[in-house]
Nucleic acid binder design. Structure first.
Length: 615
RNA sequence: GGCGGGGUAGCUCAGUUGGUAAGAGCGACGGAUUCAUAACCCGUAGGUCGGCGGUUCAAGUCCGCCCCCCGCCA
């Protein structure tokens, strides 16, 4: 059976995430994963926090807390946020964990080194003698050489749009101690991306993994496979125009995966003194978190080797595992260019296996030297704004998730987010739209369930009515929508999929109106019962179709039907067997409450007030 | 300045490889109905598909130029 390995971009453990992150990377992946769980696929949904890098050290130091303590806190915060909105991962790990993450990352590093995909290079960097450390971009400020603004940061100016080369700053100073840094030469290792495929059908290079990467690229980087926004970014822009170049993968920093964990001599040219100051660059180790978190999952299952079922492919079966990365458009380059290259270039020879074993004292997993699964697709979303502006915690332009959940059901947010998901262009969340979409769900879907169940409760003793003609409701259009819904989710078109769901509810409403059971109950109870029965039996179909999108609501409906367990996929559900004549229904109630104008107006006001107070 | 993405009914947007007289939801208007969360159902109005030119028997859909918005990079 085909396995699915679903990932969401690892959130950075340096602050809260917002609805934009949710709609871009977590919600679509969750829906995709839930759909596949529902139809019985073998699916693993992997995520975790990305916990290294300079911004974290800057902020942790500002707060005066340890790095680990700092990222642990945000890890829990982010996990709480996602859990609250119904995103259910199989595993949610942390990249700061030495085992397995640090070890696996070093393994990646060593294999790339053995395969000649990594090389050292001399670069110049600021060094602060007072603090006794190298200063990365964010640790140095000075006067902007472009606009003359003071306190320009080492990565970007506060005034003008210039991306700063920190070495060119006028009167640079260390942000920590204010002293003037000196310029030092330092060796960093770089990932050589020149071997990345030039085009579909091109010739691979001769280094290990080159052929696999090209073969993957030929399948992956096509108009048929990728969404238009992803295709143009990857192929037109990054590959054809900019051409992937070398990128540094080590830094002199005290927070990250230390190269000193490797034995002396494992990296030619790296002295123990240098190793003690170096860590892997955060962008390099972060995506490896997908793999290490899978190991974590397997370990929790009691069989660590099971991670191989998802990540390591047999020699000749490229399509055995469908690896799908969900993320926002800012992450397209990493996941379409850099990470696949890192994976493909893990393929190595006996000498490569031996050198890694020697350095790490026995291999971490049995994956050494074997072929990693490469992504089937990267269905990236565009950006999501809030009432016309970017979500921004610093500008106080955001919606507090705690306050949100006190008032509203997270499921109606999920519904709204899918309805307005930025699948092909930037979109935005507005409270007015949220109200409209929520009420749409309440009217078309929630109200249908209510009218049907209350009818049964009042006139049929809260049981599935018996007697009368069979199959009054034509199943063909329903089946078509169910099939269309599944195909749309599988093709990463969630808005279309949700359209199908709403259409099924509309079919139900239309049928109900045509049958006029409120009339027939007076003169033809059999016909009335048959109509209501047909409507009742549409409800488990709706519950199953709804579950990937609005799981808790779908489960509530399931309960109202007096059914056990969770909703099942409509395509594999026999509604008549599930709800036989005489079946006792559960307690009917309001499935989706509507939102009134004054509530929405209050939220809009609250949003603007908070932003104004912060200014 | 370069690149990318947008510019389709009042609003939010769909429109796969060019081809049945341009679609949906919301909003508006009219009708029907009363089982239901004043919900549902039926119908009407409304668009020179940013502008100009080209290719084609046929273009919102391909090509060229121009205008406006957003983003990334200079």
């Amino acid at each position: 059976m085909t396995r699915l390995l679903v990932t969401s971009a690892l959130p950075y453990a340096n602050g809260p995430i917002h609805f934009g992150h949710l709609v871009g990377a977590y919600l679509p992946a969750d829906i995709f994963a839930r759909y596949h769980r529902l139809i019985g696929s073998d699916v693993l949904f992997v995520c975790g926090t990305d916990e290294h890098g300079v911004p974290i050290t800057v902020n942790a130091e500002k707060e005066g807390v340890g790095y680990q303590e700092y990222v642990d806190r945000w890890h829990e915060e982010i996990r709480g946020f996602l859990t609250r909105f119904g995103v259910e991962f199989d595993v949610f790990g942390q990249t700061s964990r030495p085992d397995p993450h640090h070890r696996l990352s070093l393994e990646f590093f060593l294999r790339l080194l053995h395969n000649r995909r990594i090389a050292p290079r001399e670069v110049k960097q600021f060094y602060c003698a007072t603090c006794d450390r190298f200063l990365s971009d964010r640790y140095v400020e000075g006067t902007c050489y472009s606009c003359g603004a003071e306190r320009a940061r080492g990565d970007e100016c506060r005034q003008c749009p210039t991306l700063i080369d920190p070495l060119k700053l006028i009167d640079p100073y260390c942000v920590t101690c204010r002293s003037t840094p000196e310029t030092r030469s330092v060796t960093q290792w770089e990932l050589l991306l020149e071997g990345y495929p030039k085009r579909v059908g091109g010739a691979p290079d001769d280094l290990p993994g080159g052929k696999s990467l090209q073969e993957w690229f030929d399948r992956f980087a096509t108009r048929e496979n990728l969404k238009p926004n992803v295709y143009s970014t990857v192929v037109t822009k990054l590959v054809e125009q900019e051409k992937p170049r070398a990128r540094p993968i080590t830094r002199n920093l005290r927070w990250g995966i230390p190269l000193s964990a490797l034995p002396d001599g494992a990296v030619p040219g790296l002295t123990p003194e240098e190793a003690a100051e170096k860590v892997l660059y955060v962008w390099f180790d972060a995506p490896i978190g997908y793999c290490s978190n899978t190991i974590l999952w397997a370990r929790e299952q009691g069989d660590e080797a099971r991670w191989r079922e998802y990540w390591i492919r047999p020699d000749d079966a490229p399509g055995d595992v469908r690896l799908v990365h969900f993320l926002g458009k800012d992450n397209i380059p990493f996941h379409c260019i850099i990470f696949p290259a890192m994976l493909a270039w893990q393929e190595t020879d006996a000498a490569g296996i031996e050198s890694v074993e020697k350095a790490l004292g026995g291999v971490l997993g049995p994956g050494v030297g074997e072929r990693y699964v490469l992504p089937e697709n990267v269905p990236a979303n565009e950006f999501y704004n809030l009432e016309g502006r970017k979500f921004s915690t610093s500008d106080r332009w955001y919606i507090d998730p705690d306050e949100f959940c006190e008032q509203f059901d997270p499921d109606v947010l999920r519904f709204t987010l899918v309805r307005t998901m930025p699948e092909s262009a930037d979109t935005e969340f507005t409270w007015r739209e949220f109200q409209a979409r929520t009420n749409e769900l309440a009217d078309a879907f929630g109200n249908f369930a209510s009218r049907v169940l209350k009818f049964a409760e009042k006139y049929f003793d809260n049981r599935v009515p018996a007697g009368g003609a069979k199959d009054l409701l034509d199943p063909a259009p329903v089946d078509e929508h169910v099939a269309g819904l599944g195909a749309a989710i599988d093709g990463y078109r969630l808005r279309t999929a949700l359209d199908h769901f709403v259409d099924i509810a509309r079919l139900g409403n239309k049928f109900f109106d045509e049958q006029q059971p409120w009339k027939s109950r007076k003169d033809d109870l059999e016909a009335c019962g048959a109509a209501i029965r047909a409507c009742i039996r549409l409800l488990p179909v709706l519950a199953g179709a709804a579950w990937p999108f609005i799981p808790r609501t779908a489960e509530r409906l399931w309960e109202m039907l007096g059914l056990e367990g969770r909703p099942t996929w409509p395509g594999s559900t026999d509604a008549a067997a599930l709800l036989p004549e005489g079946h006792l229904l559960g307690e009917a109630g309001v499935l989706v409450p509507k939102i009134s104008d004054d509530v929405v107006a209050a939220e809009v006001e609250k949003l603007h007030r908070r932003a104004a107070e912060g200014a």
